[in-house]
């Protein structure tokens, strides 16, 4: 799991970038004080590059922190998920390309924190995140600098239908589906961790925080929770790259990825569009194509 060569290479490159003043800081991960987990770290001084680590515990989508450093040149140690997010942020003019230096790193998958007893696993028992199944090992395709052992090529996506679970759920009756989400949303405590952890949720004033007018109830009851969770999901349509951070952050264990993936599937099937693949493409909802489906116009 831990690949020493990769980590040493990351440290070396990070040091070079800081020394050459190509970047003001580098965002990466360091070991948590428990010696097992990893936490985000912000490196300003070249001496500190020794803190950097790279393994399956580096679960975070670090692209989320890019908003915190306007005007600065930021180096980011990024896996494929983070890079897809950066692509969307570039497409949406939230970042200046010259202000971000992407150190793309081969990713072997990250742990599924909710399904792993974080402290008791042996390397071989790690429960990898479901999102990584079709992806790992993943070598980023968009970067300024690539760190990879290059031993394994990116595997073509498996033949299996990646939306099989979504389809299974769709096949259920309306009542069943509503009952399922009612039970899930009831647990929502409106802590907005899903929003705060999402690199795509960058609105300066979120609709959920507005009170003049108030668009939906602030009460953590079913009606308010339903409005919040669906608004969040809809606002990510065509933008979510399925990093799964919202679901990981949710203390109530709401399966938010299932909502995101439903929208992802609709968009893939209707517009043949996937978010986060190329900076040359216009964001889906900012574009128009005369071949777009228009059955809804009657």
């Amino acid at each position: 799991m831990v690949n020493k060569e990769l980590v040493e290479e990351i440290k070396k490159k990070a040091k070079e970038l800081l020394e050459a003043k190509q970047v003001d800081l580098i965002i990466g991960c360091q070991r948590a004080s428990d010696g097992v987990l990893a936490v985000p770290v912000f490196i300003y001084k070249k001496e500190d590059v020794e803190k950097l680590v790279w393994d399956a515990y580096c679960v975070y989508n670090l692209a989320n922190f890019l908003h915190d450093f306007p005007g600065q040149k930021v180096g980011i140690i990024a896996k494929a998920c983070d890079i897809k997010s950066i692509i969307v942020l570039l497409q949406e003019n939230q970042l200046k390309r010259e202000n971000v230096f992407i150190i793309g790193v081969e990713c072997l998958g990250v742990v599924e924190e909710k399904k792993t007893d974080k402290y008791r696993v042996k390397a071989e028992d790690i429960v990898y995140h479901e999102k990584c199944r079709a992806c790992k090992p993943s070598i980023p395709v968009f970067y300024d600098l690539l760190i990879s052992r290059g031993l394994k090529k990116e595997q073509p996506a498996a033949e299996e239908d990646i939306y099989a679970e979504v389809r299974k759920f769709e096949a259920k009756s309306l009542e069943e589906r509503f009952k399922f989400w009612e039970a899930e949303f009831k647990r929502c405590i409106r802590c907005y961790a899903c929003r705060q952890v999402c690199p795509m949720c960058y609105c300066p004033r979120c609709v959920a925080d507005q009170s003049m007018p108030s668009w939906f109830s602030k009460a953590a009851d079913f009606s308010g929770n339903l409005s919040w969770n669906l608004t969040r999901a809809m606002h990510l349509a065509g933008r979510c790259i399925d990093c799964g951070e919202c679901e990981r952050a949710c203390p109530a264990g709401i399966p938010l990825r299932e909502l995101n993936r439903k929208l992802q599937k609709e968009i893939k099937e209707m517009f043949n569009y996937e978010a986060g693949l190329s900076t040359d493409k216009k964001p889906l909802l900012a574009g128009f194509d005369k071949n777009d489906p228009e059955e809804f116009i009657k």
Partner: peptide
């Protein structure tokens, strides 16, 4: 506080 996401998990729980 650099890595803080400004969410409500810590306070609500």
């Amino acid at each position: 506080s650099q890595s803080c996401l400004s969410c409500g998990v810590c306070t609500y729980l």
